[in-house]
Design a protein around this nucleic acid. Structure first.
Lengths: 232, 232
DNA sequence: CAGTGGTCTAGACCACAGC
DNA sequence: CTGTGGTCTAGACCACTGC
C-alpha cells in the first residue's frame, strides 16, 4: 500500500482530528513545520491541507495558520429524483394537461413576472405498478422558440424540462418538503379513500441571475415515498 | 478587480461550460496548452482546474485529459436541525422519559446489537410558542462511563447527544423523510384534534466503522415544519 | 520584526493513453 | 513513441498577523 506523501499528511491530520487529539479551533502545525516533519516541499504539504479543506476538516486564516473546523453536523446530502425514491420508483406517467396560461397574482409573484407574461402549466400523474402515487403540477416560464414536446415532457424530471433553454449547470434549485392532508381533488386523482398523509415537495428553479425559471409541486402518497439523506 | 491567474482560468472555463460552449464529455485544453494560453506555470493551471474539480464541473482521467462532467441535477444540500426549520423553531422541550431498556427484536436488529445489550431510550416533546409541535423518540447505544445528563440531553440535537462518546467528525448520518397519519398516542401528545399529517424524520447515526450508534424518529405536525434543500 | 498562508515559477520524473 | 495528468522539488515574492 504505497500512497503519495500528501495523502499521508491528509490521513495523519484527519486521524488526529477524528481521535480528538486536535479539537475544533486548534491550530495545525504550520506549513513550514510540516515540510520539515515530512521532509517534503511546501507544495506537497499544501496539497494535503487542500484535501482537508475540501472535506471540511480545516480552514485557514492568512497570516495566522490552519485551524480545525467545527463539523457541520446539520448538513445532509439529499438525492431527490421525482421518479425514484428510497422505497419506490415511478414506472408510468400520465400527462393530464399541458397549457399556456396567464398566471394569477400569487404565481406571477412567485415567478417574478408580470401577469400578462405567459406560463406553461403541466399536470401529471405518476404511477407505480398501475397505481397512481403522485400528482404533479409544474409552471415553466414560456420562452418563444422553445418547443413543447409532449413526449419529452411526460417523462422528464423538472430540471430536465428546462435543459433546452438553460444549461443544467447554471440551474439553482430550491426544495421545500412538507406533509399535508390531501384535498378532494388530489384524493380523486390518487384514488385515495382511506386516511392518508401526503408528502409534498415544492421545487423552484432559478437561472444564474437568480431569475425564477420554473415552479413545481409534487404530492406523493405518504406510504409510497421516503426521501433519503446522508450526512458528512 | 484584480484576481489571481488561477481564478481567471477557473472563471473562464466555468463560463465556457455554463454557456454550453463546452458540453458534458468534452475535453478541456490540456494543462500544457493552458500554460501557454495564460503564459503561466503548470501549477497555476492545475490550481484553477482543482477548483473546477471541487465544484463538480470537470473530472480528469490520467493519461487522457480533463473532461466536462455531467451535472448532478438530483443532488441537494439539506440542512436538518431538529429544533429549527424553514418556517418554525423549537423554543421549549419537555423530556417525557429517559430510560435504560433492553431492545426488542426489531430495535436490536436495527442497532446491530444482541437483545441483552442495554439501550438508552429517550422521548421528548418539542414546543413552539407554547404548543407541542413534535414528538421525538431516540435510542442510543449505552456506553458505560458515559453519564446521562438530563439537562444536556433535553436540548441536544441527536448528533450532539453522541458527541461525548464519538467525535462528531466521525459520525455518519442517514435521514429518512416521510409523511404519515398520526396514531392515537401521537395525537394525544401533540394535542391534535383535527385531521393533520405528520412529517416524519428518521435519523440513524453510525461511527466510522459503520457501527450504528443511535436511532431516532421525530414526528412533526405537518403544518409546523418545512424542510429546505438547495441544489448545486 | 519574524512567522504565517497565498500565489507563482521553472523545472523534474512517473504511469498511463493511444498511436 | 508522444502527450496526458499525478507527484514533487526548491526556490521566490506578497500581504497579513502579532509582537
Amino acid at each position: 500500500m504505497i500512497s503519495p506523501v500528501y495523502v499521508k499528511i491528509f490521513d495523519d491530520i484527519k486521524l488526529k482530528i477524528n481521535s480528538a487529539e486536535l479539537k475544533p479551533g486548534d491550530a495545525i502545525d504550520s506549513e513550514t513545520t510540516l515540510c520539515k516533519e515530512y521532509g517534503t516541499s511546501r507544495m506537497t504539504v499544501r496539497n494535503g491541507l487542500a484535501m482537508l479543506v475540501n472535506e471540511g476538516y480545516i480552514y485557514s486564516i492568512p497570516g495566522k495558520g490552519n485551524f480545525v473546523k467545527k463539523p457541520e453536523h446539520n448538513k445532509y446530502n439529499l438525492y431527490y429524483d421525482e421518479m425514484n425514491n428510497a422505497i419506490n420508483s415511478v414506472d408510468k406517467t400520465k400527462l393530464l394537461e399541458v397549457n399556456i396560461i396567464l398566471p394569477d397574482e400569487k404565481l406571477a409573484d412567485n415567478l417574478q413576472i408580470t401577469k400578462n407574461k405567459r406560463v406553461i402549466m403541466l399536470r401529471r400523474l405518476f404511477y407505480t405498478e398501475g397505481k397512481p402515487i403522485a400528482y404533479d403540477v409544474k409552471y415553466l416560464i414560456y420562452n418563444k422558440g422553445t418547443p413543447i414536446v409532449e413526449k419529452e415532457i411526460e417523462y422528464a424530471s423538472f430540471p430536465e424540462m428546462l435543459s433546452k433553454s438553460v444549461s443544467l449547470f447554471t440551474l439553482k434549485k430550491d426544495l421545500l418538503i412538507s406533509a399535508q392532508i390531501p384535498d378532494q381533488d388530489i384524493k380523486r386523482y390518487l384514488e385515495i379513500r382511506e386516511d392518508l398523509a401526503l408528502l409534498v415537495v415544492e421545487q423552484k428553479l432559478y437561472n444564474l441571475e437568480n431569475k425564477p425559471m420554473g415552479l413545481g409541486t409534487t404530492f406523493y402518497r405518504g406510504d409510497y415515498i421516503k426521501l433519503e439523506g446522508t450526512g458528512q
